[in-house]
């Protein structure tokens, strides 16, 4: 599939000498939801800033649907809508005026029907004549999204869209994001709520210290890096893992009441049947069994820790 955004060898060193991005390569596929994860200061916002024209790259090249972001910036930028991380809004303008302004800025003819539709979808319709400064933080966030969508972008960047946002808005927002994706819009989001990435994204990229350390299909990633654990609740507490079971990768919980077996979902044989047979043979009786799978959060924390 042809990439809609193609980042090659991209570096950014700030005037202070801080190197925010180190020769990054990244391909974003047309129509996907791509989640970019990384700790604070990893380079997420710098990367988005460069692609959108807010930060000047030190080195490297970015193509947006084949248009170079420097030499052909008009074509590149007119495809992109950006929802910035900070709540940067006008103060005295009305919601309607600021959203209409954004559409004009991107060179699109006025289209009140489209603006009306966006405001309704984002539950902003009854606030359309309110001054922005009178709105709550969550409402301002909606205004920023409405501004980004005002010019019908093909690519939408959401930089930490759910930071400090209540549950209801988050639901609304993901509803909008899903319907945008269904209409063919490519979405790149950064988030701190890894559960959201797990829920929403088609592919995941992890950035740390200015390096992209991983880009993977979400399902594949969960499968590859996800381990599963089988927890066996014992009827009687044990002091130690019995010698007869030493061949298995077993750990005993601190209170001695649970045996935990870690296994790889990928392998041909998980070893569960054998383990259970040997437990039976050793006369260890158990009350219950349950399995857990590592979440994206665990995977992410592991990756970033390894990278340090």
């Amino acid at each position: 599939m042809q990439s809609i955004i193609s980042v090659a060898n991209l570096s950014k060193t700030y005037a202070s000498g801080f190197q925010a991005l180190k020769r990054i390569d990244l391909e974003i596929r047309r129509g996907e939801i791509f989640a970019l994860l990384g700790p604070n200061g990893a380079g997420k916002t710098t990367l988005i800033g460069i692609i959108c024209g807010i930060v000047t790259p030190s080195e490297g090249r970015v193509l947006v649907d084949g248009h170079d972001i420097v030499t052909d910036y008009r074509a590149a930028r007119s495809m992109i809508g950006l929802v910035p991380q900070e709540l940067t809004t006008d103060a005295f303008e009305t919601v309607w005026a600021t959203v209409t302004f954004s559409r004009g800025l991107f060179g699109k003819p006025a289209d009140p029907t489209h603006i009306t539709k966006i405001l309704k979808e984002l539950s902003l319709w009854d606030k359309k004549d309110s001054k922005i400064m009178t709105l709550s933080g969550g409402m301002k966030r909606r205004v920023l999204i409405a501004k980004a969508l005002s010019h019908q972008p093909q690519i939408l960047f959401l930089d930490e869209p759910t930071a400090g946002v209540d549950v209801e808005l988050r639901k609304d927002m993901w509803q909008v994001v899903r319907s945008l994706r269904d209409s063919g819009v490519t979405i790149i989001l950064t988030t701190h709520y890894i559960a959201e990435a797990e829920d929403m994204a088609d592919r995941i990229g992890v950035i740390n210290n200015g390096d992209i350390i991983l880009v993977e299909d979400k399902v594949e990633l969960m499968r590859k890096l996800g381990t599963k654990q089988l927890t066996i609740e014992l009827q009687k507490q044990l002091d130690a893992v019995p010698d007869a079971l030493a061949a298995h990768r077993l750990t005993l919980s601190a209170d001695g009441g649970n045996l935990v077996y870690t296994y790889d979902t990928q392998s041909e044989r998980t070893g569960i049947t054998a383990l259970l047979a040997e437990l039976n043979h050793a006369g260890i009786r158990f009350r219950d069994l349950h399995t857990t799978q590592s979440s994206l959060e665990d995977i992410f924390v592991d990756l970033v820790r390894q990278d340090r």
Binding site: C52, I54, I80, F106
Partner: peptide
């Protein structure tokens, strides 16, 4: 940010 990211 909006002025800088607009196609202008």
């Amino acid at each position: 940010y909006e002025l800088l990211s607009a196609p202008i």
